[in-house]
Design a binder for these strands. Structure first.
Length: 304
DNA sequence: AAATCGACCAACCGCCTTTTG
DNA sequence: GCAAAAGGCGGTTGGTCGATT
């Protein structure tokens, strides 16, 4: 049996709010506050609206200091960066942008920003193809901005737990695994091991569960390690964000590339937006690997 | 001028989490 | 400790409007 509805749907008005309704709700809340009970509020005011609807109307349109439209370039970058790193957690993203609501940001992302980002990505691909010549990839460092070569796990300026200890979204690690010329990922009990052969080097990342932040660590369990679901678990990091602290990964330093003069969250540039594109794209991918046997063990290999 | 299409966005829906009794 | 109520959130829908055919 499902939950009882929060209000009597037959007796509540739906659809757009009239100026009179807005005025009633606004003046009441400004004078009395919400009283900590949205469900009871419409009855008190004499509005034939669902309490949830009142809450939404207040939060998204009536409360003071709300900004609508006119997103700045800086706001775009913040939204893109956060989306790439934490996914569609609109309320968290909105918390970083004073005056913006989660609904507004969500609409803005879905209607404009996503296309803008993908448009940039196409441009970037074309430019890269032109540059390619003999060299497939290049690392470009310019005045503090960072460009991320494929196969390199990025540091992110967000999600800093402590100074000089930047977590790496495993989603990024996963996305870059997809870009390798060959890659095998093995997840034995309690450990995530990624063996990657990039054009730069061959390296091996071993992560124990306690190197993954607890919020999502349970997506990798012993149960899933030896099943083909394991990468669905991996894939879920794209939206759930498991983070890895590079300082806790032996010999990992060489894997990470970023602006060399930036060692903490302070005064970090959001970076070139194009560097986010590959992350975003990869985060959208849900490529499931093939199970293969290698030296008697089961592995999951991704075709790239 | 009418029809169609696509972009935009306010509002709703349903699920999950938190609070309360 | 449990169940119900309320809050909060993200995905989706549907109405409106401007551009295009």
């Amino acid at each position: 049996m499902g939950r009882a509805p929060c209000c009597d749907k037959a007796n509540v008005k739906r659809g757009p709010w009239s100026p009179e309704e807005d005025a009633k709700l606004k003046s009441y809340i400004e004078e009395h506050g919400t009283g900590g009970n949205w469900i009871a509020l419409p009855q008190k005011i004499g509005l034939k609206r669902c309490g949830k609807s009142c809450r939404l109307r207040w939060l998204n349109y009536l409360r003071p200091n709300i900004k609508h439209g006119g997103f700045s370039e800086e706001e775009d970058n913040i939204i893109c960066s956060l989306y790439v790193n934490i996914g569609s957690r609109w309320s968290i993203i909105a918390a970083q942008l004073p005056g913006r609501t989660d609904n507004d940001i969500k609409n803005y992302w879905n209607t404009k920003l996503k296309k803008k980002l993908l448009g940039k990505q196409r441009k970037e691909h074309h430019a890269q193809a032109r540059r390619a010549g003999g060299l497939k990839q290049e690392i470009k460092r310019e005045s503090g901005d960072m460009m991320l070569p494929v196969g390199v796990i990025s540091r992110t300026p967000h999600w800093s737990y402590e100074q000089n200890s930047w977590p790496i979204p495993l989603a990024n690690a996963y996305s870059h695994l997809n870009n390798q010329t060959s890659s095998i990922v093995h997840i034995p009990d309690s450990t995530v091991t990624a063996i990657m052969n990039s054009q730069y080097s061959s390296f091996d990342i071993s992560l124990t569960q306690d190197q993954l932040y607890p919020s999502t660590v349970n997506t990798i369990t012993t149960d899933t390690c030896h099943t083909s679901n394991v990468f669905q678990g991996f894939g879920s990091f794209s939206s759930d964000l498991a983070c890895v602290d590079p300082q806790h990964i032996d010999g990992s330093e060489g894997l990470f590339y970023g602006s060399t003069n930036t060692t903490s969250t302070e005064s970090t540039s959001w970076g070139d937006i194009s560097s986010l594109v590959s992350h975003y794209e990869a985060c959208q991918q849900r490529i499931l690997p093939q199970e293969v046997t290698f030296e008697g063990s089961s592995y999951f290999a991704m075709q790239t």
